Computed example of a mutant assay.
Amino acid sequence: MESSSYIISPALDGDEAVIFVPGLGGRTKFVDGWNEPGLEPVIHRANWSEPMNVPSIEERGAALSSLVARSGVTDVVLVGHSMGALVCLEAGKHLERRLRGTVVMCQYPPHRTPLSPLAELPDRALAEEIEAPPHILNTTALSEYARLWRSEYRLLNRYLEADPRPLLDAPLIAVGATDDASSWNADSLNDWSQYTTEWLSVQMIAGGHQVVEQLPPETLREWVGKLRG
């Protein structure tokens, strides 16, 4: 039995699913706001079961795809934010025909993403750089959070240096934010075309790296509908 994996909430039920995978820090509470009464499809959120256990991006992708396969879902759209977009890329290569499409938000494709220097910052400077919530900035546990963040950035850097890259057989929507250093350049986002045999659509929205937390549910469902055709 796997010691850690993703926990999907609400639980997967039926043939189709839309799953949101967060980036560093794992914030997903805002996903509840996407599931207002009467809105379909339901957006499921993926949380890592052991937040202080930091496996590789490849391992996380494999774990997520295994969970989807065991659930019986045969039509899945993955939505990944920041590093979560890379997890979706890795999960997608295992899901094969189960994958209907992927939305990657605030993340350049691996070969266009520079190695991150953030792992070398002091605790508070690192927390401020990634826009950590105020209650984390002022807690005595900040050093433990910072240790986790550094571990994830080191994993990210190792992943960015890896080769070969996954190639998905499903369409991609790459979403950039105009004030986000990780996704403001539409030309760089266009290079996601190298990771799919299907079509790519680049969408630009106003905001910074955490714009996903203010994303209107109608906008996300529009993208999901476009992927499903």
Rank of each mutant, 00 (worst) to 15 (best):
P55A: 05
P55G: 01
P55H: 03
E58D: 03
G61L: 02
A62Q: 07
L64M: 00
S65D: 10
S66E: 12
V68M: 03
A69C: 09
A69H: 04
S71I: 02
S71Y: 00
S71M: 03
S71N: 02
G72K: 04
G72Y: 00
T74W: 01
D75G: 13
V76H: 01
V76I: 09
V76E: 06
L78K: 00
G80D: 02
G80V: 11
H81N: 06
H81V: 11
S82H: 03
G84C: 13
A85T: 07
L86A: 09
L86S: 07
C88Y: 02
C88K: 01
L89Q: 03
E90C: 06
E90H: 01
A91R: 00
A91L: 05
G92M: 08
H94P: 15
H94W: 12
L95Y: 01
E96F: 06
E96W: 02
E96I: 14
R98M: 15
R100F: 14
V103M: 08
V103A: 09
V104Q: 00
M105D: 08
C106V: 12
Y108L: 14
P110D: 07
T113F: 11
P114N: 06
P114A: 12
S116Y: 02
S116I: 10
S116L: 11
P117V: 14
E120A: 15
E120R: 12
E120W: 07
L121S: 02
D123G: 05
D123E: 09
D123I: 07
R124C: 12
A125K: 14
A125S: 13
L126Y: 05
L126K: 10
A127M: 12
E128M: 11
E129S: 14
E131Q: 14
P134C: 11
H135I: 15
H135V: 15
H135M: 15
I136R: 10
L137S: 10
N138A: 13
T139W: 05
T139G: 14
A141N: 15
L142F: 04
S143C: 05
Y145M: 13
A146C: 09
L148A: 10
L148P: 06
W149N: 06
E152T: 07
R154V: 15
R154K: 11
L156C: 09
L156E: 05
L156T: 05
L156M: 08
N157I: 13
N157T: 04
N157G: 05
Y159S: 03
A162L: 10
P164L: 04
R165Q: 12
P166T: 08
L167R: 03
L168C: 04
D169Y: 01
A170L: 07
A170M: 03
A170D: 04
L172S: 01
L172F: 01
L172V: 06
V175W: 00
V175P: 00
V175I: 06
G176H: 02
A177W: 01
T178L: 07
D180P: 09
A181R: 13
S182T: 12
W184G: 14
N185D: 13
N185H: 04
N185G: 08
D187T: 11
D187I: 09
D187L: 11
D187H: 08
L189H: 00
L189S: 02
D191K: 05
S193P: 04
T196A: 12
T196Y: 03
E198K: 04
W199Q: 08
W199D: 12
L200Q: 08
S201N: 14
